[in-house]
Design a protein around this nucleic acid. Structure first.
Length: 498
RNA sequence: GGGCUAGUAGCUCAGUGGUAGAGCAGUGCCCUUUUAAGGCAUGGGUCGAAGGUUCAAUCCCUUCCUGGCUCACCA
């Protein structure tokens, strides 16, 4: 049953009146010749030629003055005023004008004009109800003050309502809709770059019998027909590597990943990721792709590589600086960990009150010092390279330092925004490392992984030398659009039912 | 999970131990150049839910629900 109130009743009454007048309040189609951006960009020409235009949008301002009515319609590209004079439209159309409310979708036909107050408008000769809204929209209003600043009155601002009723947020808050336009352009820029680089776009399973590729707790679900437990993807890494084994030597995929963990400003249970893998490449090649992608994405969204975001001034001009983990620790913590004894490192850990879970491993201790002393200082953009081998079992050993691996993590505004390796392709070592991880539970962490025999089988069949990259797309969008929370870059963030 | 904080009209908010107010929106009338929609009039609320204290609760207390900020957890 529709949730009624006096305003809904009033609109439903208008709906009935429209039908009594023989007007279909929900017609099937309306031909639009121009959008508002075109109308505005071609103002002089349209005025001079008195071109007949057909245009449609949603009523966001309505001011009827007796036998004349001013309204603003908003379409995807902007908004513009429509002027309807009862003397210029059929009498029946003006009856429709009188039954129009904020939020209705309207189509008009007419020519362009400038009002006495100087506002460029469409003067309607036909006025068509395209969809009658029976629920009132919030009614923010705005004006430009003497300083030229936009002042908004009664803004639609409730965070909860904005997320739950994103359709209203998008309708009423232009800055919100701009975020999603930019999001689309960013994704497009990434895709274009990878396609230019001869990458193949592929799709891999979301429902997986065994999850893997990241240390994360999965969502579990059930396939009734097969009586089978399935997991929602936490990462697509293992499938993309299978693609490389199969000779699809440059692949990428945008995916939704699902991780059954806490939510906060930068974590959502459902988030977008991009991974790409390139045969015969190493992590140095992948760093170049990474910085190129960010540079292009930033330009696509902002028209420049220099932006202010998360309270910091950041340049995404490639190339980005590189710093090894050892160098970073020396720079920010003043420690030469490489030449320190285990006991010395233990004492530094204790000094910092860092708690180490599970079995003591030198590499994990060094990682902890890095996270504690360095991460917050990495305004970036910067690549941190050459991690201790305990960091991950999927990365290839460093070509000169046996205790390290060829991993890099890019940092921007102190956030880790990706992860990349020269991929481990020695199948026997891969098996050993995965078995070690499974048996050890990674030093007491919860997220032990089941052994993925099928993945190991594929590596055994021959993975060429490969570079791989994972990018957290939502965090990337947050940074490139300067949004404070991950929910501000997801159209419909998860909310508990009301 | 911890701390802090919020929920009052369609929206944004004010408010009080004696069952509630404003602006916009709505309704009615007037208005052919408005622009925060100009004039006059006017309807609208189980004050998030349930319990408790009290003569009396929207207000005080408890619990719950739904949010926000923050810490912790989490690549």
């Amino acid at each position: 049953m529709i949730d009624r109130n006096d305003q809904v009743d009033a609109r439903i009454a208008k709906l009935d009146k429209l039908r009594e007048l023989g007007v279909n309040p929900y017609p099937h189609h309306f031909s639009v010749s121009f959008d508002s951006k075109y109308l505005i960009d071609n103002k002089d020409q349209l005025l001079a030629a008195e071109t007949v235009v057909r245009w449609a949008g949603r009523v966001v301002r309505y001011n009827r003055k007796g036998k004349m009515c001013f309204m603003h319609l908003k379409d995807r590209t902007g908004k513009m005023q429509v002027v309807v004079m009862s003397s210029n439209v059929p009498e029946s159309d003006y009856e429709v004008v009188k039954l129009t409310d904020l939020g209705d979708w309207i189509g008009v036909e007419g020519t362009c004009m400038v009002t006495q107050a100087g506002e460029y408008s469409v003067r309607a000769t036909k006025f068509v109800m395209l969809s009658k809204a029976v629920r009132p929209l919030p009614t923010p209003k705005e004006k430009i003050d003497e300083q030229g600043n936009k002042v908004v009155f009664d803004e639609f601002a409730s965070v909860e309502l904005r997320y739950r009723q994103r359709y209203l947020d998008l309708t009423l808050n232009d800055d919100v809709r701009e975020v999603f336009y930019k999001r689309s352009r960013i994704v497009q820029a990434i895709r274009e770059y990878l396609l230019e680089q001869k990458y193949l776009e592929v799709e891999t399973p979301t429902l997986q019998p065994i999850y893997g590729g990241a240390n994360a707790r999965p969502f579990t679900t059930h396939h009734n027909a097969q009586g089978m437990t399935l997991y929602l993807r936490v990462a697509n890494e293992l499938y993309l590597k299978r693609c490389i084994v199969g000779g699809l030597d440059r692949v990428f995929e945008f995916t939704k990943n699902f991780r059954n963990e806490g939510m906060d400003r930068t974590h959502s249970p459902e988030f977008s990721a991009l991974e790409f893998y390139e045969a015969f490449a190493d992590y140095n090649d992948m760093m170049r792709h990474f910085e190129n992608i960010w540079e292009r994405a930033c330009i696509a969204a902002n028209g420049t590589t220099e932006i202010e975001t998360q309270g910091k001034q950041v340049s995404f001009k490639a190339p980005w600086p590189r710093l090894t983990v050892y160098q970073a620790i020396e720079k920010f913590a003043g420690l030469q960990v490489e030449s320190m004894s285990d006991d010395e490192i233990k004492s530094e850990i204790a000094k910092r009150h860092i708690e180490m879970k599970g079995e003591w491993l030198r590499g994990r201790a060094i990682l902890s010092i890095f996270e504690h002393d360095c991460e917050p200082n990495l305004t970036g953009p910067i690549f941190i390279t050459d991690f201790p081998k305990e960091s991950t079992p999927l990365c290839k050993g460093h070509r000169t330092k046996p205790e390290l691996i060829e991993q890099f993590e890019p940092y921007v505004v102190g956030w880790e925004v990706g992860n990349a390796y020269t991929e481990l392709n020695d199948p026997l070592l891969q098996r050993e490392l995965l078995e070690e991880q499974v048996s050890r539970g990674r030093g007491g962490e919860d997220e032990t992984h089941p052994m993925d025999e099928s993945f190991l089988h594929s590596i055994e069949c021959g993975l060429p030398p490969t570079g791989g990259v994972g990018i957290g797309v939502d965090r990337m969008i947050m940074i490139l659009t300067n949004q404070p929370t991950i929910r501000d870059v997801q159209l419909f963030p998860l909310m508990k039912p009301e």
